[in-house]
Design a protein around this nucleic acid. Structure first.
Length: 203
DNA sequence: CCACGGATTGGCT
DNA sequence: GCCAATCCGTGGA
């Protein structure tokens, strides 16, 4: 069972830092969502950083619009957006209010609520054990598994039913770094971070 | 008003 | 490995 003691919830100051530092430090932390009696939990194992001030791939690069306004909130808020006509992607806003930076959560290792995740993703039926590794191994997949959609965008991760638990810092040798996936601008920035060898990575 | 394209996924060749 | 699906915010006419 997951320890959900309040004192383990990451505090505001964790998020009010440069987006690259927050992205790396989120690896190994545990994302939690409660929904009535249901609890969803998983270790964050893959992330990407986006910073509208210098990064043309960021939604916030061209300034605030109705779609991306949550990305300009104070660090520690959840930014969920809809894309490709079908998928939601979940991000953690970082920095001071008005900055426009966030960390995209790209993959999670399920810890608790796996049966609920299977319901959300596959209507309750796992075709094979291998499908466990397909539950949360992508930004759209984990958002679906956790039941995160645009109604959650703007929530405060320090004071709501969605939050992140502190965990010991990952050994830096276990952190892999690469270019980001699926973008067409600022493609060479090495802003994707992941836990080397984890079987739940998106690729 | 309308055309464009996306921080993806899954099914088919 | 390739490509269609599918919505809606955004920007130009």
């Amino acid at each position: 069972m997951v320890n959900t003691s309040k004192k383990l919830i990451l505090p505001r100051k964790f998020y009010i830092r440069p987006v690259i530092a927050v992205a790396k430090d989120l690896l190994g932390k545990v994302l939690i969502k409660t929904e009535g009696k249901k609890i969803f939990a998983g270790r964050i194992v893959e992330v990407e950083a986006y910073d509208g001030n210098i990064d043309e791939a960021s939604h916030s690069f061209k300034g605030k619009t109705k779609r991306n306004e949550v990305m300009f909130n104070l660090g520690g808020h959840l930014y969920v957006y809809f894309t490709y006509g079908a998928h939601f992607c979940s991000n953690v806003v970082t920095g001071k209010e008005g900055h426009g930076a966030a960390v995209l959560i790209r993959a999670i290792e399920p810890i608790a609520g796996i049966d609920y995740m299977i319901i959300n993703r596959f209507n309750g039926v796992l075709k094979s054990e291998k499908e466990l590794y397909n539950l949360t191994s992508g930004p759209g997949k984990l958002s679906k598994a956790f039941g995160l959609d645009s109604s959650y965008s703007g929530m405060d991760l320090t004071n709501s039913s969605v939050y992140i638990l502190d965990q010991p810092k990952l050994n830096q040798k276990k952190i892999g770094i690469s270019k980001r996936i699926g973008i067409t601008r600022s493609v060479d920035l090495p802003w994707r971070f992941f836990e080397i060898g984890n079987p739940y990575l998106s690729r």
